Simulated assay, not measured.
Amino acid sequence: MRTIKKPFFLKPLCYHLKGLSMLVGIVIFSMLFNCTNEGVEDLVVVESSSSKVMQMKSTTPGAPQHLTSLPGMAMGSAIGLDGDLFVAQSGASGSILRIDKKNGEVSTFVSGLPGSVVPIGGVIDVAFLDDKAYALVTLVGSFFGDDYINGIYRIDGPDSYTVIADIGQFALDNPPTGFDYFLPTGLQYAIQAYRGGFLVTDGHHNRVYHVTLDGEVTEFKVFDNIVPTGLEVSGNTVFVTQAGTAEQFHQNSKIVSIDSKSMAVSNLATGAPLIVDIEFNRGRSLFAISQGEWAGEAEGDAALPNTGTLVKVNDDGTLTVVADGLDRPTSLEFINNTAYIISLTGEIWTVANVAGPPYGM
Rank of each mutant, 00 (worst) to 15 (best):
E297H: 06
V211G: 03
T212V: 07
Q188L: 15
T245A: 04
S257D: 07
F249H: 06
E293N: 13
M263H: 14
G203P: 04
S290I: 14
V217Y: 03
A264E: 02
L286Y: 05
E216H: 11
A288E: 01
A246Y: 13
R195T: 02
F223I: 12
L199N: 12
P184R: 02
L274I: 13
A302M: 12
M263V: 01
I191L: 04
A243H: 10
R282I: 14
I191T: 09
Q291T: 00
K221S: 10
I275D: 12
Q188T: 13
T237C: 07
N236F: 11
A243V: 01
A193Q: 10
G271V: 13
T270C: 10
V276C: 10
Y181D: 09
H204T: 00
L187M: 14
L199E: 11
G271R: 05
F220D: 06
T212M: 01
V276N: 03
H250E: 11
T185Q: 15
N252H: 09
T241H: 09
E299R: 08
V233K: 13
G230S: 06
D224P: 11
N281D: 13
F287S: 10
A190N: 14
E247C: 08
A303Q: 03
V217N: 00
N236S: 10
A303F: 08
T185R: 14
L213C: 14
V256R: 07
V256S: 12
I258Q: 03
D202V: 05
G292Y: 03
A295P: 07
S253A: 13
R207C: 09
S266P: 11
A288H: 04
G203C: 14
F239E: 12
L187P: 08
T241Y: 13
A288T: 15
K261V: 06
A295R: 06
T241L: 03
V200G: 04
V217R: 00
A302T: 13
L199S: 09
V211E: 06
Q192A: 05
E219M: 11
L286P: 01
L231T: 15
Q251I: 11
G230K: 02
P228G: 13
G300H: 01
M263F: 06
I255L: 15
A269W: 00
A190M: 13
K221H: 14
D214M: 12
Q248P: 02
L213R: 05
H250W: 04
A272Q: 06
Y181K: 12
A303I: 10
E219D: 12
I289D: 11
I258M: 06
G244I: 14
A298I: 04
D301L: 05
I191V: 15
L187N: 11
S262I: 10
L199M: 15
H210A: 10
S262D: 06
Y189D: 12
Y189S: 15
V233W: 05
E299P: 12
N267W: 14
D202Q: 02
G271S: 06
N225A: 15
D202W: 00
M263A: 03
D259V: 12
S260W: 02
G197I: 01
G271D: 13
E216I: 11
T241G: 08
S266W: 10
L187Y: 03
